[in-house]
């Protein structure tokens, strides 16, 4: 490995090929983050629209209005949480994309460091979210089994 022309004297480096791949990754990351923002905001809007429609259509009716209002509030909270997850994930991805793009354009080592920290944070974020989801699914299964 030491004789490879692309490896630097002191260790690994971002050579031309790696730079091209990272640039494409950062472009796709930007696309992903913009779509994440759009999806998050759409879910938020959808949640508020559904909430207001349910509240307005059941307002003043006697039967089941309390249950519908509770369900609508729960639905709104769920939409806010899901939108928050998507938007936070998109922020990490956008951070990575912007910083890596700056690092590759200006050969700035500091931006590369912060870009890599951003991708690490993004991966940790999604891993923790997945762990929480799996735990919730398992809890649901346990609940069903006991019922």
């Amino acid at each position: 490995m030491e004789n490879e022309p692309s490896s630097s004297l002191f260790g690994l480096s971002i050579d031309d090929q790696s730079s091209t791949t990272l640039r494409t990754a950062s472009q796709w990351g930007r696309v992903l983050s913009v779509l994440g923002f759009i999806l998050g905001i759409s879910i938020l809007i959808l949640g508020f629209v559904m909430y207001s429609k349910l509240m307005v259509s059941y307002q003043g009716t006697y039967r089941g209005s309390g249950a519908v209002q509770t369900a609508a509030t729960r639905y709104l909270i769920l939409c806010i949480v899901i939108a928050g997850v998507f938007i936070t994930g998109a922020i990490f991805t956008l951070n990575f994309s912007n910083r890596v793009a700056i690092a590759l354009n200006t050969s700035d080592q500091y931006s590369l460091n912060s870009g890599l920290i951003a991708i690490k944070s993004g991966i940790i974020f999604w891993a923790v979210i997945f762990i929480i989801f799996i735990l919730l699914v398992l809890l649901a299964f346990i609940g069903i089994a006991f019922v």
Binding site: S8, F10, G11, L12, S13, I14, D15, S19, I102, A103, L104, T106, S107, D108, Q109, Y110, S111, L112, N113, L116
Partner: peptide
């Protein structure tokens, strides 16, 4: 962005100990 003299390697970006 201003490129800080200490932030750039001679030829390309490196993966240092921190990275």
């Amino acid at each position: 962005e201003q490129i800080q003299p200490g932030n750039t390697s001679l030829f390309q970006l490196n993966l240092d100990a921190n990275n």
